[in-house]
Computed example of a mutant assay.
Amino acid sequence: MTNFIDFHILQNVPPSCVNRDDSGSPKTATFGGQRRARVSSQCWKRETRQVFGDFLNQEDLGYRTNRIVDLLAEQIVAQNPDLEPESAKLAVDVFKALGIKLKASRAKKDAEEEVGNDVSTYLVFLSSLQLRQLAEYAVEKAANEEKPKKREIERLLNRNHSVDLALFGRMVADDASVNVDASCQVAHAISTHSVENEFDFFTAVDDVKSQDEAETDAGAGMMGTVEFNSSTLYRYATINLDMLRENLGSDDATVRAVDAFAQAFVKSMPTGKQNTFANRTLPEAIYVSVRDDQPVSLVGAFENAITSREGTGFVTPSVSRLVKEAADIEDAYGVKPLAQFTCGVGDSREQLRQIQEPVAFPQLVSDLDNLVTELLAKGE
């Protein structure tokens, strides 16, 4: 039996532009025939990974980069400083043996003299421990004057996954045998109501010029526009607990991963235009359900866009819709979560009591950790 952990979050975001499209406009989507504010899943996963460092050591994390030669060369030198002159070549030999395509770095292309090591043609996700083990392997092969072997490298990359790698997966186009299936899925966050993007026209005044009495040009030093919107977002993510355990290979590591994800996903905020809008907020309502049937998003609660009524705003009706959708799905399909946890601010607390008595967020995470520990123990 597979267990899933669903995270449902309602969060107010004031005027902001946290996630832009290629034209600089805040991302949007059409849902229920209405234009909604949107923050892409890629964007929020990136910010979640950035916050992981607050809860985990670097040993538990990895690097997603195309500068894999640089990283491995540094590890090789750290283990054997005498190999520094040939460290980059040894790193290249390892990745070429695996079949990963490399190309000259931009710095090397632009410089008259050779500068910088080769880079991979796409981003590669490697855990800190995998990098160290690849370095040990390269040092050993150099000492024995042997060439790296593809099968041996694949074995090194199919164990000791980092938490972020185990959650979000890895795809290596040149060697599918070292791919890692993501145990976590993150939805695009969308507003529970319709939005219309607005424009902020701004000017910047030249401090020195404005103080010059002889200056006749009183115009601004620069001017421009920034597009923005504000919204109450519904955010959803789910973790396949059994797949996460398989990826990490340890019950303790799995509990740490769930704990870190819960805290980082809830507390993270994309940083686009943050200095302009100071839009950092925390969720108004959090609902976590642990299921043994399948992941269930409650986004259907907002297919009919919420309209603001005087004195209510969007949060209160959004929480009400979320609670009702959870109950309706349970009644219609006869399925009930194994456990439910809630946390809310203000009036949301009273509404969430219809699901489960709200607790402070640290207590929610602690209770979730305890349940995950019990489920993993039963699965042994």
Rank of each mutant, 00 (worst) to 15 (best):
F4W: 14
H8R: 04
H8Y: 08
S16V: 00
S16L: 00
N19I: 02
D22C: 08
G24Q: 01
P26D: 01
T30V: 10
Q34E: 14
Q34V: 10
R35S: 09
R38F: 02
S40Y: 03
S40C: 09
S40F: 02
S41G: 14
E47G: 02
E47S: 15
R49N: 04
N57I: 02
Q58P: 00
L61A: 03
L61Y: 03
G62Y: 01
G62V: 11
R64V: 04
R64H: 03
R64P: 02
V69S: 00
D70S: 02
L71R: 02
A73H: 00
E86A: 07
E86R: 10
A88N: 05
A88Q: 10
G99Y: 11
L102F: 14
K109E: 15
E112V: 14
E113R: 15
E113S: 14
N117C: 04
D118A: 13
V119C: 03
S120A: 15
S120H: 11
V124T: 13
F125M: 11
L129I: 10
Y137D: 01
A143I: 09
N144K: 15
N144W: 08
E145H: 11
E146R: 11
R151C: 03
L157M: 09
L167K: 08
F168M: 11
G169I: 08
A176R: 14
N179M: 04
A187T: 13
N197I: 13
F199W: 15
A204S: 15
V205C: 09
D206M: 06
D207R: 14
D207M: 12
S210R: 15
S210I: 05
D217T: 07
A218K: 15
G219L: 10
M223E: 13
V226P: 06
E227L: 05
F228A: 03
T238H: 12
I239H: 09
D242T: 10
N247S: 11
N247F: 09
D251G: 11
D252A: 15
D252C: 07
D252Y: 07
A253L: 13
T254S: 08
R256N: 14
F261A: 00
F261D: 00
Q263K: 15
Q263D: 03
V266L: 09
K267F: 12
T271P: 02
T271K: 14
G272H: 02
N275L: 05
F277R: 01
A278N: 12
N279R: 04
R280F: 12
T281K: 05
T281M: 14
E284C: 10
A285R: 00
I286M: 08
V290T: 07
R291I: 06
Q294A: 13
S297Q: 10
V299R: 06
F302E: 04
N304R: 13
A305E: 10
T307E: 13
T307S: 13
G311F: 13
F314M: 12
P317F: 06
K324P: 02
K324E: 14
A327M: 10
I329A: 08
A332V: 10
Y333R: 14
Y333H: 13
Q340N: 11
F341D: 00
C343R: 02
V345A: 13
V345G: 06
E350F: 09
L352W: 02
Q356N: 11
A360I: 07
L364T: 08
V365I: 12
V365F: 10
L368H: 01
L368T: 05
N370F: 08
T373S: 13
L375S: 01
L375V: 06
L376C: 04
A377Y: 03
A377C: 03
G379A: 15
